[in-house]
Amino acid sequence: MKLSLIRRASVAALVLAATVAPAVAAQSSDTTPRSGTAVKAAAIGAKARLLGEKIVPYKLAFQDTTVGGLSGIDRNPCTGEYVMISDDRSVLQPARFYTARIDVDGAGVHSVDFTGTHPFRQPDGSVYPPVSAGDGKAVDPEEVRVDPRSCRRYWWAQEGDRPRSASEPVIQPSIQFANRSGAYRGQLPLPANYEITTGDLGPRRNKSIEAITFGDKDRVLTSAVEGPLLQDGPEPTLEHGALVRVTRQSREGAVLGQVAYPLEKIFAASDPSSPWPPDTGVPSILAFPDDPSRYLVLERTWVAGSGYKIRVYDATTRGATEVGGMDSLVGQRVVPMRKKLVADFHDLGLSTVDNTEGMTWGPILPNGERTLILVSDDNFADDAVTQIVALGVRVR
């Protein structure tokens, strides 16, 4: 999600629709952070502490590419290396991913060393064109996962593009898989309500698929749209949150279930002198290894004058209403996923809180904690950073 670019672009101001918000039978249960750097999620059971951070140099040159826009990260369980996806829409260089070694332990993040990069390729073998080409073939890469069954494939999500005018092409979101060199190997069929339509249905512009994860013994791929679908009600405001859809699918694409996740309200009022509205959503979701109903969910919010709010929640689908058959969530009695706060980045003592968009499990520490590695998307802007953050997460 290119928040820095949004602040600079000439886009129309967001008009909040005067529609009725979805009826919610169980509200989100955000916890109040305690003092210090550890925050408990008592009911579901995870707590996190800061291990360390590392800032990657701005516009680092690597193998004839510009490192930046890192919006997704995953750890290869076979090699211990990490793969990171750039959301460069082939503007600086072709849409691509990086591999890297991240030296992290209980004492912090010691180094981040990039080891390779490859462009993603279309079915005909060509790289993706820049979005400015206007031919409808551009992509907006946002998330990447290493196939845990073989480590030989990378699954990646791109959120497409809902055009601002009828003269621009619709670019549908997709979940594709590629080999380790970026060559196209296939695509996952998506649920019908993930499709961008010409009417008031489907994902909002720049609010489609940003989050995918493997779970349930690697048999299920779960995805989340970043914001509420157009038919599901308005986006969050200072007064109310919103519901976003989370979908479980088989590796072949069969939809196994769809539930709603409750996005928090906007945390602060915007600077009245700014033309840019608040922006919030779910950029990443991560399955717990041993519980097919449990996920870490990353919420990222930007407010003019207040900056970023980054929060990680422990969430479960247990007891959540099946919503796949609901054309709209407005006016429906919906029990969303339950959630508890694991970490608010403002409570961790970080050097800065920026546009964090990706997360993955890292190695298990000697004390039994799992490491959680997160990365921020600097949008190739000089007022932002590429930040690698490591948390120690104790799971109960």
Rank of each mutant, 00 (worst) to 15 (best):
K2T: 02
L3V: 14
S4F: 07
A12L: 12
L14K: 13
V15H: 15
V15N: 10
L16S: 11
T19K: 08
A21N: 10
P22R: 09
Q27A: 15
Q27I: 01
S28R: 15
G36C: 05
A42Y: 13
G45I: 09
E53R: 05
K54T: 05
I55L: 11
P57W: 14
A61N: 14
V67M: 13
G68R: 14
L70A: 06
C78A: 15
C78K: 15
R89A: 05
V91Y: 04
Y98W: 12
Y98D: 07
Y98H: 12
V109K: 06
V112S: 13
P119G: 11
R121D: 00
Q122M: 15
P123G: 08
D124C: 07
Y128L: 02
Y128Q: 04
G136P: 10
A138S: 14
V146G: 05
D147M: 10
S150A: 08
R152L: 12
R153L: 14
R153D: 04
Y154S: 03
W156S: 02
W156M: 05
A157Q: 01
D161R: 15
R162L: 00
S165D: 14
E168M: 10
A178P: 14
N179A: 07
N179Q: 08
Y184D: 07
Y184Q: 09
Y184T: 04
G186M: 10
P189V: 04
N193I: 01
L201R: 12
R205Q: 13
N206I: 00
N206R: 01
S208C: 08
T213D: 05
F214P: 06
F214L: 03
D216I: 01
T222N: 05
S223P: 04
Q231S: 13
Q231G: 00
E239K: 13
E239P: 08
G241I: 03
A242L: 03
L243C: 02
T247C: 00
S250L: 05
E252N: 09
E252R: 14
V259K: 04
A260C: 10
P262E: 09
L263S: 03
I266W: 06
A268D: 10
A269C: 09
S270I: 04
D271S: 11
P272A: 08
P272Y: 09
W276V: 14
G281D: 03
P289L: 13
D290P: 03
D290L: 07
V297E: 00
E299A: 04
W302F: 15
V303D: 06
V303M: 02
A304M: 10
G307N: 09
Y308P: 13
K309C: 03
K309W: 06
A315M: 06
T316K: 09
T321C: 11
G325L: 07
S328G: 08
S328K: 01
G331K: 11
G331I: 05
V335T: 15
R338K: 10
V342H: 00
D344T: 02
F345G: 04
D347E: 15
G349H: 07
L350W: 08
D354L: 11
N355V: 11
M359Q: 01
T360E: 03
P363Y: 01
I364H: 08
R370C: 01
L372P: 02
V375L: 14
V375F: 13
D378F: 02
D383P: 07
D383S: 12
V385K: 14
Q387W: 15
I388K: 09
V393W: 04
V395Y: 11
V395F: 11
V395W: 15
